[in-house]
Simulated assay, not measured.
Amino acid sequence: MLTAKIRVQPAEGSWVVRADGAVIGDSKRALELLEQNREPVIYFPREDLAMAFLEASDTSLPNTQKGRASFFNVVLKSRSIDDAAWTIEEPSEEAARIAGYVAFDPSLVTIEQL
């Protein structure tokens, strides 16, 4: 079985993540995870996120390429967006740089490069 190569690099510029107009995070220190045959994923350092919007979910998924993913719900005044974000707490060696970072599902929130 061939394994997909993972590359983690600094994401150029400033990045912002929003949900229903609320700014969840804003970072110039985001990382971009590139994986064969997948869209790039932007990971935000926790220090650059308003963690009060994130509530741990019961969802977790094994991922042999990056490590186990633990999910967050994005909690807003008007609603909760289930499993909209995730983190890889104990990443594989290839993905070690994303430890302590959080990624978001672009189909559920808005992620923009400024």
Rank of each mutant, 00 (worst) to 15 (best):
D20I: 00
V41H: 01
A11F: 08
E12I: 03
E93L: 13
D26W: 11
G21D: 04
S92C: 01
V16T: 14
L2E: 15
N63I: 02
M51I: 09
A84H: 08
P62N: 10
S107H: 13
L31H: 00
A11T: 08
R68Y: 08
R79S: 00
T64E: 10
T110E: 12
E35H: 01
S107T: 15
T64Q: 14
T110F: 08
D26Y: 13
A84T: 06
R97T: 04
G25Y: 06
S57W: 02
F53P: 08
P40V: 10
A99T: 09
L31E: 00
F53E: 10
S27V: 02
A56F: 10
I111V: 15
A30W: 02
E94H: 08
F104P: 02
V17E: 03
R29T: 06
K28C: 07
L2N: 15
E90K: 11
F104N: 00
N73G: 04
Y101C: 10
A11G: 01
L108F: 05
Q113L: 01
E94N: 12
R68W: 14
S57T: 00
L33R: 05
R7G: 04
L33M: 12
A19Q: 00
V8I: 14
I81A: 05
A56Y: 10
L54Y: 14
L108I: 01
M1G: 15
E55R: 12
N63V: 04
G21Q: 03
K66M: 06
